[in-house]
Design a protein around this nucleic acid. Structure first.
Ligand code: MN
Ligand code: MN
Ligand code: ZN
Ligand code: ZN
Lengths: 132, 132
DNA sequence: TTTGTTATTGAAAACCATTTTCATTTGCAA
DNA sequence: TTGCAAATGAAAATGGTTTTCAATAACAAA
């Protein structure tokens, strides 16, 4: 099973890899595993909740390991619309998460939703993309 | 120019239409306008900032009118991962926006980003999708 | 061991939203 | 009119992802 291979790649990077990125890295160690299997495995891992799937607007899905049970790695994203750079930020999260929880509760009740997740991204221009 | 036609469609719905949805509606009034033009027009409107482009994970982009200058229509989204239903919510926004502003300022300074936008979505299951 | 049945796999083909190409039409100034 | 650039839509191309399908692996009887 390529499951371990994919998880291994994802747990050794803080980048946001595409399916093909992951395939290429997996391929170095397990040349037998094909791109189709990587897609299938990612699909399952996302369904299981072990992996998050993101869309940062560049036409391909990006993946990252879901935070462990301690939730210690939870972070949000800062996305440069110029060069596509993505920053993981973990600051301000405490306050954010507190408000989010409150908001979630309110929304759950009002709209009768069982909320399981949230997505928070800030868009802007990084230093390099602002200069020229 | 199909600009008015597209804006007209978007300003008369609170749904989150795909390019083809918009094309079909525009087509009723202006049968001469093609899908390519709708894509081109949407692209421009998004660049200008008059229209927002979203990805709710169903493989096609969704569009909605950006809020007017008063920002009175600003809202975030609740997405059902079961049926794809999308709820616009405007509650809790005051508190959220206050914290967001604070977070934005902190992030701008720390990471040297000029933040122009944010995306906030809650994912979960609506009542209908939770039952069965 | 065999045999049969099912699950897994990857290569190739299909899919499909979006983009590109390109020939035609339109707008407009000289 | 004439000339030229911008705008337009039909058709073709693109490209990430999904589907198909034949081959192989796993596993359970017999
Ligand atoms: Mn991240
Ligand atoms: Mn909306
Ligand atoms: Zn940048
Ligand atoms: Zn639902």
């Amino acid at each position: 099973m390529g499951r371990e291979a994919v998880l291994d790649v994802l747990s050794h990077t803080d980048q946001h890899l595409s399916a093909e990125d992951i395939y290429m890295r997996v391929h170095e160690t397990y040349p037998a595993i094909g791109l189709t299997s990587v897609y299938r495995t990612l699909d399952m891992l996302v369904n299981i909740g072990l992996v998050y799937k993101f869309d940062f607007g560049d036409g391909r899905a990006r993946f990252e390991l879901a935070e462990g049970p301690k939730g210690k790695d939870h972070h949000h994203h800062l996305v440069c619309t110029g060069c596509g750079r993505i920053v993981n930020y973990r600051d301000f999260i405490d306050e954010e998460v507190a408000l989010l929880k409150k908001t979630e509760e309110g929304l759950s009740k009002k709209y009768n939703f069982a909320i399981t997740n949230h997505l928070i991204q800030f868009y802007g221009l990084c230093e390099g993309c602002r200069k020229p």
